[in-house]
Design a binder for these strands. Structure first.
Length: 463
DNA sequence: TTTAGGG
DNA sequence: CCCTAAA
């Protein structure tokens, strides 16, 4: 109907928001009031503007606030679900949205274009970012997650099935299916509105973070289960304010695509940390932290697939069957070397000894393949190094044992006697293959048959 | 590509 | 644990 009027409203809203941005002050009250103002002003025409949405909300008209919030959300130019197809191409709309929500708009459009998500596994939080339209789902998750920030006290439990409902209903909206009565639509919009509220408070859009934040649809439920009244008037947390102001000072308001994109990263980071802090909802995002860290981790993971955060932990030989991720960073020394040091557990050492006794010394690849393939880490080189170190330790222990046994602190690790004995025994059977003497160029030592025969001999001996 | 040695 | 040389 009055799209022009609507767009005009949007334009006005944009101006207001820009003003808000410029006059940003740490004071909570002012911002909140202004936000409220922004939210409420365009309400009336909007309910009448969009019939579909009205019908949607009418189903829930018992809850006044939902309407209200929804209206505010709509009035801020945050696109209504139904009109997006029409509006998507118009520059006016984009401008009216101030570019802030462009990311989100595009995400939605993407969903609309890609269409077929009736039974897409959106509820599967692990399947993120695989399908082209999944940004839409992540949008949902991200938005709903944003509601978590101000409503940290809400119950996060229950409703897996409802989760699905949310998703499907959301799809219904995306499919422009007005006949699908959905209370979730309202929830969805409410969460969006909250999101928007934050942006207004912030002076920054979180839309980017919405896109980068993935899944956690469970939080959608939180919007519903929570008392809706509180949402609008809840003040942001202190931490949120601090982060916002920090962001503000870091980067001035800019709606250019590039800057928005860059913001997306940092915002998503902060967003994630914040949400994690407020609620430790299990999030399987391996690392939404520093991209640098992620990059290095990735690079490292080429060699060692499963390197995790380092954390100091107990002695490797203290626990028998805990072959979890023990990584000792060795913080102070050797900055580059031994970045990912993972302590060898007794079970691992035992396995190593078994493998050596089975395959022989020198066949590190086999040992790793047959015994340490499940670990993921422990390359053949690691295995060999460990054996080398074991030999050294055992010999050292053997000698030091003769003197005394008081060296609790001097000796870094005391091998269990069984392990040490086995290592010594194996060391006698399989001497560690020393490289042949450098200067010996005799045909015997140079010929491959020699070394190979030696190794075969060793192997034969053990088998 | 695997192994060995050194750092 | 990492790097490099040798095979």
């Amino acid at each position: 109907m009055d799209r022009e009027e609507y767009l005009r409203k949007c334009s006005n809203m944009k101006c207001q928001r820009v003003q808000l941005d410029e006059s940003y002050v740490p004071s909570l009250q002012d911002d909140e009031m202004e936000v409220e103002h922004l939210l409420e002003e365009p309400r009336n025409d909007h309910v009448s503007l969009d019939g579909t949405l009205t019908s949607h909300t009418a189903l829930n008209d018992k809850d006044d606030l939902e309407l209200e919030v929804l209206d505010g959300f709509l009035g801020d130019g945050f696109l209504d679900d139904v009109d997006i197809n029409d509006l998507e191409g118009t520059d006016v709309f984009s401008n009216a949205c101030g570019g802030y929500f462009l990311d989100f708009d595009l995400a939605k459009v993407e969903i609309l274009e890609h269409g077929a998500y009736e039974d897409s596994p959106l509820e599967n939080s692990n399947s993120e970012s695989h399908s082209p339209g999944f940004s839409g789902s992540s949008t949902v998750g991200g938005i709903s997650e944003s509601t978590k920030a101000p409503n940290s006290t809400q119950s996060k439990s229950e409703i897996k099935s409802l989760d699905e409902t949310v998703i499907h209903d959301t799809h219904g909206v995306f499919r422009n299916n007005p006949s699908q009565p959905s209370n979730v639509d309202c929830m969805y919009n409410i969460s969006l509105d909250i999101q928007h509220l934050h942006e207004l408070n912030n002076g920054y859009p979180l839309a980017g973070s919405i896109l980068s934040c993935k899944k956690e649809n469970v939080t959608v439920e939180q919007c519903q289960s929570a008392p809706p009244r509180e949402k609008r008037f809840r003040k942001p947390t202190q931490r949120y304010i601090e982060e916002s102001s920090n962001l503000k000072s870091k980067e001035k308001v800019s709606t250019t695509g590039v800057k928005r994109k860059r913001r997306t990263v940092s915002l998503s980071n902060e967003f994630h940390t914040k949400t994690k802090e407020l609620k430790d909802i299990p999030s399987d995002e391996s690392s939404s932290g520093n991209s640098d860290v992620t990059l290095s981790e990735l690079q490292r993971c080429k060699k060692h697939p499963k390197k995790e955060k380092l954390e100091y932990d107990y002695e490797p030989f203290s626990s028998e069957e805990s072959e979890d991720e023990h990584l000792t960073p060795k913080r102070g020394r050797s900055k580059d070397r031994r970045k990912n040091q993972r302590m060898w557990t007794v079970s691992e050492v035992t396995k190593l000894i078994d493998g050596i006794s089975q395959y022989g010394v020198g066949r590190w690849t086999d040992i790793q393949k047959f015994l340490f393939s499940s670990e993921g880490y422990r390359t053949p080189t690691d295995v060999r190094d460990k054996w080398r170190n074991l030999l050294r330790a055992c010999t050292a222990q053997k000698f030091s044992n003769k003197e005394d046994e008081q060296n609790d602190e001097t000796a870094p690790r005391i091998l269990p006697f069984s392990v040490a004995s086995r290592v010594l025994e194996l060391a006698q059977i399989h001497p560690y293959p020393k490289r042949r003497n450098k200067k010996r160029f005799t045909s015997e030592s140079y010929g491959p048959s020699s070394s190979l025969g030696k190794r075969n001999l060793r192997r034969k001996k053990c088998t």
